[in-house]
Design a protein around this nucleic acid. Structure first.
Ligand code: MN
Ligand code: MN
Ligand code: ZN
Ligand code: ZN
Lengths: 134, 134
DNA sequence: ATCATAAATGCGAATTATTCGCAATTAGAA
DNA sequence: TTCTAATTGCGAATAATTCGCATTTATGAT
């Protein structure tokens, strides 16, 4: 199957297809990394309203199309998530690397917690990348 | 060895021992769970200045005495961390459970990333606790 | 014990990210 | 095409956190 367009993705998730939504989702897909709301606005060429962008992001997150992370920073970052994954972030230069490493939350819930199931998890690693380790 | 007092802890980390610092650290130790800056101020009986509390928290975090988490919420939470651990949070009622489960970041860095070492990581689980699963 | 000095505090004002209220617009169903 | 609920745009409002600066305080040296 070929990759779905932003419009199709929105429709698949039962969302009205508006141009802001298409643009935001498209920008997120292009970015291929976590990006903050304001940076997203810049990427869109300033034509979109910031409140609308925030509302759009909330919607996309609620549908699971986009993953929201609150790093140590105080602003939220949003990433289009075609496939679940995590990041390793360099605390010196901000370089971000994707990692396939994950954890089996289902098994884990039984072994290590009293919850029957775990719906989601946040996992981020911090270190100094090889370039910054002189 | 018996448990160190807040004052001793501060001294051990090369920090000036002030009453706000002792109070904040003490409150965090008592709380035994992540707590936000303002809640901390309440716990301290309103006598401490919020800007000072924030500065104190930054300091404690920088020394590794306290662990800062930015959940999905927009406010940061701080927890005294005698021993590294993570949480399982119920998205219905907010119940928070500690879990011993962790990951071996050293081994991991070699296997799954290009970083030589990983200094820290954030790991939080979200689900619905048994009480909320009617 | 007193002093000197850098560090910490308190206060108010400033910033920053995010949300809200509401009138105007628009997507999609009928 | 028409109708209506959902979405947008704008500006103003919130909420969390930080900043500037004058004042106080902890601690090391005398
Ligand atoms: Mn990624
Ligand atoms: Mn804990
Ligand atoms: Zn995962
Ligand atoms: Zn861990």
């Amino acid at each position: 199957m070929k990759k779905a367009t932003p419009g199709e993705l929105l429709r698949q998730h039962g969302l009205k297809v508006t141009s802001t939504r298409k643009d935001v989702l498209d920008a997120l897909i292009m970015a291929r990394k976590p990006i903050a709301a304001e940076a997203l606005q810049d990427a869109l060429g300033k034509n979109a309203d910031i409140a609308t962008i925030y509302r759009t992001l909330q919607t996309l997150v609620s549908k699971g199309l986009v993953y929201q992370t609150n790093f140590r920073d105080r602003k939220a970052h949003y990433e289009y998530q075609e496939k679940h994954h995590h990041h390793v972030v360099c605390t010196e230069c901000g370089t971000r690397e994707e990692t396939k490493l994950c954890i089996d939350a289902k098994k884990l819930a039984r072994t290590f917690t009293n919850f029957r199931t775990l719906d989601s998890h946040v996992l981020e690693f911090f270190g100094v990348c090889n370039k910054c380790t002189t």
